[in-house]
Design a protein around this nucleic acid. Structure first.
Lengths: 232, 232
DNA sequence: ATTAATATATAAAGAATATATAAAATACAT
DNA sequence: ATGTATTTTATATATTCTTTATATATTAAT
């Protein structure tokens, strides 16, 4: 299962360790940065799901960090700070922080607020994925999210292996895939004796998507090598 | 210019007035509700951009209100509460609240946190289907607020799990949901041994909403993958 | 070209797996 | 206590996968 990645930006080792241990118990993955400049780099390269930011860093103003990060991503930022003045909170939140917790803080509340941040990130993620996930090749259409295949606008039913097979070919349109490669990808095995089985699946798949199976439009045979999906 | 609409759910007139005056100075539009049941209705009809919720309402538990609202919309909810116990915060935030402020609170901080909530709402953009409190698909109708389900205008009775299951499928109409995803969302667990239980629920749910269970109109089986609600 | 050797397509039977659903057992709530 | 909801268990049915067999096609060799 995917562990969510948290970037901790904090120079005080005591707080940093507390947060690290807490995140470990909750099975999150994390990475730490001790300076602002380091933090900016990590925010890019580590690609975290959420950022925990201490405002009192030695080399850079907290608001500057928030602005820098916000210039290219909406990754949730939770500020953790010793300063409880209104003005500090307002500045950080208006700069683009999503939440502001003052030290000392309760671990349970901290985790709950982190969950809020991650929940939001997730629900936003679903939205963007939903659109650009349709494969179209001539009259053939694969909707990966819906898990459906259409031939000339008519939905056709594929078994799990047939579906995997078609997706594999589609994702590699134009490339010849060897028998062994296909077996490894779809079945997970490389037992050569499964090749006859692959042939049977190829036949049934063609019967479902090709107009004339003896003159296939989509899936081409490369004798003694493998198969290839053609861009029509 | 469009004034953003805030729904205030608060029975204490003193706090209510304070918030109202504050919002007025900032040029927000607002509407108030004094009870939970009133609040639910207004959340639908007033269609606010953000909700300010006091947990200590006389007629309804705060978490219940959050759950109800969250069953059909992601409108940001900021809880304002006199209770500062960790447990209260965690419960409200995990139920779906976006922020939690304890009384007495600073007006400036309150406004900053409100701006955070509204900023997010804007960046998420217009969600088309998701924001409706009634789901309609052919003869199937779900009233999320009332918690009722109708098939061809006749109300049917669903058990809690059946209802959650149906809502999950409805919210993801068109998408195939895997067994594990459904188990995680409805039961909160990922124990694979629960799959038989899921099957039983699927059967009873179909018996209640499908005309012919052996040829389902709404819920389609994707063998060895999961289930899908079809847009009829 | 003709023949032999090899590769592929596909039908059909058999084995393995997944699903639907009834019914019993357990847990839960009022 | 009683009724309702959920989980477990068992089993028939349906679907999918593999194997086997055979016809056809392709390649290689003489």
């Amino acid at each position: 299962m995917y562990k969510q990645k948290i970037l901790i930006i904090e120079d005080d080792p005591a707080i940093s360790n507390l947060i690290k241990t807490t995140l470990e118990t909750q099975n999150y993955q994390y990475h730490t940065a001790k300076t602002g400049s380091e933090a900016i780099i990590d925010a890019v390269s580590y690609n975290p799901d959420a950022i925990i930011l201490d405002l009192g860093l030695p080399d850079m103003d907290g608001v500057t960090i928030i602005n820098k990060v916000r210039s290219w991503t909406n990754t949730p930022i939770i500020v953790v700070s010793a300063r409880s003045e209104d003005q500090d909170k307002v500045e950080a939140l208006d700069a683009g922080a999503d939440d502001y917790i003052t030290k000392p803080f309760s671990i349970d509340e901290f985790l709950a607020r982190l969950r809020v941040a991650l929940r939001r990130k997730n629900s936003e993620g679903e939205k963007s994925d939903t659109n650009n996930s349709v494969y179209v090749n001539g009259g053939l259409k694969i909707d990966y999210v819906a898990g459906c295949v259409y031939v000339d606008e008519n939905e056709i039913h594929l078994t799990p292996i047939e579906y995997k097979l078609l997706c594999l070919l589609a994702k590699n349109t134009g490339k010849v895939l060897t028998h062994n490669y296909i077996l490894k990808e779809v079945w997970g095995s490389v037992i050569a004796s499964d090749t006859p089985s692959l042939r049977v699946f190829m036949a049934t798949l063609r019967k479902k998507i090709e107009k004339d199976t003896s003159n296939p439009q989509y899936i081409q045979t490369h004798i003694s090598v493998g198969y290839r999906m053609i861009k029509v």
